[in-house]
Design a protein around this nucleic acid. Sequence first.
DNA 1: TCCCAAGTTGACCGAGCGGTCAAATTAACT
DNA 2: AGTTAATTTGACCGCTCGGTCAACTTGGGA
Lengths: 209, 209
Amino acid sequence: MAAERILDAAAALFGERGFAAVSVRDVALRAGVKKASVFYYFGSKAELFERVLDRYYEAHARALEAVARGPGDAHERLHRLLDGYLDFMEDSERWVRLVQSELGAGSAHLPRIARGLELLYERVRAVLDGLVPEQGPLAARHFFVSFAGIVNAYPTYAPALGDIFHGDPLAAHARRERREHVHFVADALLHALLERERGRGAGPARSRG
Amino acid sequence: MAAERILDAAAALFGERGFAAVSVRDVALRAGVKKASVFYYFGSKAELFERVLDRYYEAHARALEAVARGPGDAHERLHRLLDGYLDFMEDSERWVRLVQSELGAGSAHLPRIARGLELLYERVRAVLDGLVPEQGPLAARHFFVSFAGIVNAYPTYAPALGDIFHGDPLAAHARRERREHVHFVADALLHALLERERGRGAGPARSRG
DNA sequence: TCCCAAGTTGACCGAGCGGTCAAATTAACT
DNA sequence: AGTTAATTTGACCGCTCGGTCAACTTGGGA
């Protein structure tokens, strides 16, 4: 109960400021608890952070599980996967930013993050299976990184994009527009991959390179 | 001279660990200088950080300047722009991660970063001008975010991608492969935009909405 | 040679950090 | 009611943090 409140407070604060900039005192204050209780339940600041990370990735995997295993062709499944990702993100973009932040700084919690990323990679790989080669620049792992980049970039950059997007990029209508953009990109990539499949060597408009 | 060495040390350290996790003592030690000298030249840790950020964005803008203003159609110019970005990134991916890290945490230096992003946005907007609508999900700003996401995601996630990419994602041959992937994505998107231009309403494979 | 400004430094400050611990409080069971 | 274990807390620890400052060194111009 107190442990839960501490986890929630830690989640919020780490998400807002990153690991290094949050003190255990901050967490305790936000949780309505004394600092010593945090150590009683979680042992150290680092362990608290890892518990929070685990909770995030478990929720993330759970959110994508149902959505990615369903029926349909690659098109439908990819769009469902991206929608699942976008839905989840709206509830927890603090986490997207947190992970981004920890990856940016040479985090000591990297292995934990790597394990979480692998879960997400599996989903993307499953959807693209058969459509893309195993190796080379069109391998599923590259598209995984690109999709993650496209989807995560928006909430990550949002606080700095107010001038470019006129208004709050995180407002409901702006989010809807962004979602349409992501779907356009996914369509374009699938289209290019299918054309490549159809006529090997005469791929999509690779005029030079 | 000492100021230069301090800036270099600060750049390296902030890039490795992020703002909050670096102390002025660390910077002074790396620069071969006593801590008080750092304050003599830069006044405060925050000012030092902003000087470092400014130096980064100036270099970035300079690197893209020549490359983006050249001749050629949208195809050529976009590819040159992406190559310029990728080239610059190889020299300074610490910075990509640093900015990512500061955006993730609710950085106090956000305005500085926003200004830097606007410089880059201008380049992308110039290249896509005429190809994309002013508003909506295909506006240049959305492609700017997507391109930035695709390009930045790779070095950002790299330290956590060792298992998925077998081997170091930052090795020369892996980078070359990634570059090919980025070009494929750019081609696919340009292709989709041109098809849309050609036959309005019968866009690229938007099988469902 | 003297002078003065620019640069450099060691000593120091108050504050906040992560973490410990023994004592007090509460909850649960007999 | 009495016992015991789980929980909560305030006081405290050693340490590092960002920042200050007076004193010292250095280097160039008159």
